[in-house]
Design a protein around this nucleic acid. Structure first.
Lengths: 336, 336
DNA sequence: CTGAAAGCGCTTACAG
DNA sequence: CTGAAAGCGCTTACAG
């Protein structure tokens, strides 16, 4: 129960407490002699500044609140690790809150977060209510939505080009001769779910083709499996564009059990390009969300607002790319 | 930039600042009338106590430091989510630090963690040096190692029964008639890697059988794939016990590409039972580490030490179970 | 039950 | 460059 304070160090070094503080404050002035004496005493005593006390007086906690859900979708652990590394490198740390997927839940979680005097908030795959956004704004706490867009100009957000991406996926399926294309959509309560669906519909419309079916997979494995079973029970689609990789794996598993070979009997495309998508057993064609660039943009956006005081919210959209793998059959020409 | 403080609320409610504090301190005494006035004023002003200030004076931050690595192994995101939920339910929150896998890296990360005055530390899949353990102990910060054991009585840890589990896996392979059993071990620099290997060797020895091969897969996908390729290149083992599921998937992918059917041509067993293990494309027989019970034990152990002041470290080992799926061929009798 | 006051461990003007 | 002092927003004995 030591609890060595700056006062202890000051005493031992024979200087004032302010001097000790200055030695540990980047950019503060202290003579070489003072620095040396203080460092020595601090070392001997095992002193380290109390971050919380510093946060109290400086008003900067160097804590970023992160709200996450859907950790079972590999996209998020990957993003979490990248975010944490990037933030750590800049001297920030993440206070993590796991959230229920309802707006209500997210709101209460973010309110909790603000009590910790976080310097900023990243909400991954979650949306927040307008009143809460106002509260955060009033408290001067910047918020960035990660992988989710939200109407209104109170929000900064970083997403991939969901509409365009989905359109490209669909155009690719059309070009490779598919004619009965179904869509197991991402949760229609989320912007990504809606945007990807829109891209799908636009591409189909432009090609004068009708959707074989559109169902909401809710971003849930169990729901996606049920959707897949339904889709293959009667006249079968020749391709399914699935709203994210996590659900696409579920679909591939259903096909596997039904003895239907993806890439030969039917084509499957996902969205995300999580690491698993490249694993041989799935080998999933998918639209890559460039998670590293999304993370960079998020961190930059947030720290700009925190450090440079740029409070103007921005909406950043990052281009992805179609990754071709074995789950799509290449018909070359058109079918009858 | 509001920053409403208890003083503002006190003014508006016509009471002292102490009174406001008491209303927001569980267990403090205040008359019904005071409570009402204060709550009303707080509501109108949008007041919420500053957790950091509270932490400063009370000496309790209600922050738990979590050190994690290996987030690409699904076991850890799952554990993280469970830990976060359990801790949130008890009024604690997680400050997360992603760690390099070396002891050095972990040490510096834990030192950072202590600067935040965390009430306790959970180190997942990581070990720490003795000096640092002493420091934490001196600062009165309890540490629990999750899924990793460490010699010496300065550490609390929670693991599954790794030796026993590995022994059971191996006995099962022997009983089902396998005679050329290889082991792609978990990283031999970790307790789990060593313990599982030990269980493997013990079971083999008891059956008077020699290991077909033992190699260190380092808990890395790329290394495990390379090991698998080597193992199937000459005379092939009839079974491989892989140190964890994450590596087992890599092995199954290699077999898949080589056209070797797991469960028919060769038997594969993993360790963990992550959600993916039950997915149809892998259908992996594995030894389940009961992550929910491990998390419960970890939280209980930590909070006991924090709240009840039970500083006595404990080592908890939780029994798992063998989960039979399709990746093992059931020979019934013995082979020639 | 309630208010005045001290103090948690720092940073940061303010004089020297 | 350096020290004395104020103050960050709370909790908690201490008197009443």
């Amino acid at each position: 129960m030591s609890k060595v304070t700056s006062l202890d160090v000051a005493e031992r070094a024979g200087v004032s407490q302010s001097a000790v503080s200055r030695v540990f404050t980047p950019g503060a002035s202290a003579s070489a002699k003072t620095v040396e004496k203080v460092k020595k005493a601090a070392e001997e005593l095992g002193y380290r500044p109390n971050v919380l006390a510093r946060a109290m007086v400086s008003g900067k906690s160097r804590i970023i609140g992160l709200v996450v859900a859907y950790l079972e979708n590999q996209f998020y652990p990957v993003a979490l690790e990248l975010l944490s590394n990037a933030l750590q490198a800049r001297g920030y740390h993440i206070l993590i809150f796991t959230a229920p997927n309802s707006t209500d839940g997210v709101d209460s979680v973010i309110a909790d977060l603000m009590d910790y005097q976080v310097d900023g908030i990243i909400a991954a795959s979650a949306s927040m209510s307008s009143p809460l956004a106002k509260r955060a704004d009033a408290a001067g706490i910047p918020v960035v939505l990660f992988n989710r867009a939200q109407e209104g100009d109170g929000f900064s957000n970083v997403t991939s080009a969901n509409v365009t991406g989905a359109r490209k996926v669909t155009e690719f399926l059309i070009e490779t001769g598919h004619e009965r294309i179904a869509h197991i959509a991402g949760w229609q309560g989320s912007s990504t779910g809606r945007d990807r669906r829109r891209g799908f519909e636009e591409a189909l419309k432009a090609a004068n083709q009708a959707a074989f079916a559109i169902v909401d997979g809710m971003y849930r494995r169990d729901v996606a499996m049920e959707c897949a079973r339904q889709l293959i029970s009667g006249t079968r689609p020749d391709a399914i564009f699935v709203g994210n990789d996590h659900m696409a794996f579920a679909v591939l598993d259903v096909l596997h059990d039904a003895g239907i070979a993806a890439g030969r009997d039917i084509s499957i495309v996902g969205f995300d390009d999580v690491p698993q998508a490249s694993w041989a057993s799935y080998d999933l064609t998918t639209y890559r969300q460039p998670v590293n660039r999304m993370v960079e943009a998020t961190v930059e956006l947030l720290l700009d607002q925190i450090e440079a005081g740029k409070t103007h919210p921005r909406k950043i959209e990052i281009e992805g790319e179609l990754i071709l793998r074995g789950s799509v059959r290449q018909l070359q020409g058109a079918a009858p």
